[in-house]
């Protein structure tokens, strides 16, 4: 019956999924969580690769070190981004565990009242998100300084 017309989904897919514009803080934090997750996953692969070369013996290891060394400052920037990702992913992950495993920060079932403000996105949740962001940023700056120090810049 009338299958001649092509039906396609409107504005869907990965990029849409990561595009939180117009939405709530939780959705922004979701986007960040996913992106940092991917960075960590990539790092993990690289890390396994590194360890593998270490196990291959001193020659291979020297080569890897040299390869990393040739990246120069980019190695440090990379490490810094990875540190930031780990911090955010970890801290936000803790919040999600509170939410999803223990059902905390969500409020109780209520009679919705106009104008509807969902309790799961209420003040507690927002505070948790901002506290996490504050801590993560502070630690991240500290990590940056530490890396700069290692470079001998300060």
């Amino acid at each position: 019956m009338g299958e001649d017309k092509k039906e396609k989904r409107y504005k869907t897919g990965l990029l849409r999924s990561l595009w939180p514009y117009n939405f709530n803080a939780e959705r922004y934090s979701y986007t960040l969580h996913r992106i940092t997750g991917v960075i960590l996953a990539l790092y993990l692969i690289a890390h396994v690769f590194e360890i593998y070369h270490f196990a291959l013996g001193p020659v291979a290891w020297e080569q890897t070190i040299a390869l990393l060394g040739s990246l120069g400052i980019w190695e440090k920037i990379g490490l810094w981004i990875i540190a930031g990702s780990a911090l955010y992913h970890g801290a936000n992950g803790l919040r999600l565990i509170l939410n999803e495993v223990f059902g905390m920060l969500l409020g109780k079932p209520v009679l919705p009242e106009y104008p509807y403000t969902p309790t799961s996105l209420s003040r507690n949740q927002k505070i948790a998100i901002y506290v996490i962001l504050a801590i993560v940023i502070a630690l991240w700056i500290w990590a940056g300084l530490y890396l700069l120090e290692g470079l001998g810049i300060i």
Partner: peptide, 17 residues
Amino acid sequence: FAGACSYVCPKGVDPAK
């Protein structure tokens, strides 16, 4: 838990919760 569902729900159902 992006919470976008609860954010847009016109009836305050709070499905994310």
